[in-house]
Write a protein that binds this DNA or RNA. Structure first.
Lengths: 220, 220, 220, 220
DNA sequence: CGATAAACGAGACGGTACGTCCCGTCTTTGC
DNA sequence: GCAAAGACGGGACGTACCGTCTCGTTTATCG
């Protein structure tokens, strides 16, 4: 039953789309970005490596960066699904909550450090971030689809902590999150210093002091 | 063919360099990046706009990004010189030290916010940062020539504060700096939230709490 | 899979063919060639204009030129049928034979001039002729199906004239035909000079002199 | 001293043109047309075979057919120069004039037959003629640069013959030329019959009868 | 002060990739 | 089971820039 309402002139029919090609394009795009870098990755190269016509790429994506974004989201989705399997599965992808806020944050930030240092992720993540810095639209989608959901997990965990009295009233959890994540990102993006577990621990320590209730600090 | 002793063919004679062309190239590069964005700024476009032969660009710079970096450093240098004129001039570009650490940091961070929001700086800064994220070598030069000297000013101010007992012993000033600057950069680069004075103030508050001496907090 | 007795997969069943589509394809092909020229007429364009799937064209024709050839033969057939209605119909499409060879040939050549100048025919005739010049196979079909039958009419008329003593013995009627038709075609194809009735008359005069019996010329 | 008047915006500087590339392009174009035919000759193919950038072709010619036209004119020029060397040289490329008109024309038409049957010329000549049939502008240039000069030689020879009383007064030499050349072209382009010396001789015989003075025929 | 050599403006060159148009094939859906 | 629709792998289009390479033309020391 063809939907008569939708589908403007130049809009292809998504139901006929080749899954095979989509996968091949994702794989080729990620491989090329990793191997030769973003600037030297070309649509033509992706098409040729994926064994696909160029038009098949241009039919579904407007630009190289858009392809890479989807390829990356797909990769992140897979990685998340795998990680999920290691947990009990029921309560989805929340941050751990053992009651020990500092320990929980250290674990998560250390994991983030590891991921950022993982060569499998490094090239595409850098490429997309850089592209998003310059191309507002791509950046917005990147943030919306990937970054914000992740930050929201921190916000949730910190909100819980505040309700448990571990965080000072009046602290904006959003700002608190950025106090942790901002420096990490800064170091990684700008390569000013190596990104280590020790750095993650230090950040957690300073940030938690910064947002702790006054008496909590006193009692420590 | 008499071989002169010095200066191989590939090394142009910098003393004969046309200052006029250099300036025109900087201006054209910055203007184009601002007007059409980094990706659509081309060496050919810069040359044509500057009324300069392409070879004159390739003679002195290896790539588009290198031109832009120099153009940007030139711009930053001018801006710094102007800002300098407002100060007493003798003790160069140190951070203010009124004794009130929080107030000093708020002032500096607010100024940074203003600069990042200045459309005159935004496009080239984003362009160079993004390029540096992906191109390690350019990034390194960008950091070395521009970012590190600035961060060092913070480090100096915080070191002074620590000696004055306003910062907890054992706190790494470098990490403390990143606690302030990292979140700011994060917000600006990724455009997750608007960059305001209020945000700068909040960061200073939380960060200072985080690195304050225990008793200082207690006594507050 | 039950193999039906006749019609291999590659041979579609012509009895089920859609007459409606065939007509629409002919019309679209001729219209496009006339409007945008042969080179910019595409199979996709014909299909879309005819409201027909591309495969419907490829099912029945091997190439763009083959479609156009059939479309043209169809058009020529219609034109011939119309012209026929003006005659007594019984003796089909022979050249007129009033006994005055020169007058008969003038009439026919003038009619040919008019047809070649008819914008309805010009574009497709040029397109097919040009294609046939380069593509031997298409050219052969074009000649066999269209040109040769027409030239044969001239041959017949001239043979009759020779038997009536109006043409010198030993003259090859085929060559004589080309003496008339060749120059006409030459002028039309190569656009060296305008194609007029006067030119047709002149050709008839010279050619008839050329093939006349010696005494006939003497007696004239 | 740069000429300030000439050279509109997008007009390249012809004085800097690479003769090497021009030659390579001509050779590649002619070779490809001969080897794979006009339709399957591509600008990309010519460029690649000539070891030349595509832009170098598009800088100097607007289309594939224009390239081929120039390549062909070059070839024809060379061939003419070679042929010239065989003659006494002084009186350029006029048709022979031995006083025997029929013999002279037979010689020339036979040479034309040989050239049209020469595989070295066949493919490009067909290609250009066909293209000119469809593309009026190219056709006009082809006729002007190549065909008309040749036909003019015939016109000159026939005019001389008329003055010598070998051609009837009142005969238009131009039409007379087409009486000879038209049928030849017709047979060659449309491949209706093989193109032979005998055919050339027959054409000369009939055509000369057609344009002979009345008494001349009588006296023959 | 005039010679000379380097930097300059200009832009042609061999290339690579762009994003688009069609090719001819294949697959899905509906009549 | 043909037909409309159109996605697919592929090839070529004509354009934009790349970075290199001559060209004359300034320009600015040096002999």
């Amino acid at each position: 039953m063809p939907e008569p309402q939708a589908a403007s002139p130049r809009t292809p029919d998504a139901t006929r789309r080749s899954e095979r090609s989509r996968r091949a394009i994702y794989d080729a795009a990620l491989a090329l970005v990793t191997e030769v870098g973003y600037a030297r990755t070309t649509v033509e190269g992706i098409a040729s490596r994926a064994g696909v016509g160029k038009q098949t790429i241009y039919r579904w994506w407007p630009s190289k960066s858009a392809v890479l974004l989807d390829a990356y989201l797909d990769l992140a989705g897979q990685a998340a699904a795998e990680a999920q399997d290691g947990q009990d599965g029921a309560e989805a992808a929340g941050l751990p909550d053992t009651g020990d806020l500092a320990a929980d944050l250290r674990a998560v930030l250390r994991a983030t450090v590891d991921e950022l240092n993982d060569p499998r992720f490094e090239a595409p993540t850098r490429a997309l971030t850089a592209e998003g810095v310059v191309d507002g639209e791509l950046g917005a989608r990147f943030v919306e689809r990937l970054l914000e959901p992740q930050l929201q997990l921190y916000v949730d965990r910190l909100t819980a902590a505040r309700e448990a009295g571990q965080v000072r009233d009046g602290v904006d959890p959003r700002v608190a999150v950025e106090l942790l994540v901002g420096p990490l990102t800064h170091r990684w993006l700008l390569r000013t210093r190596p990104l280590t577990h020790a750095y993650a621990d230090e950040l957690v320590e300073y940030a938690l002091h910064g947002i702790a209730p006054r008496q909590a600090v006193e009692g420590a």
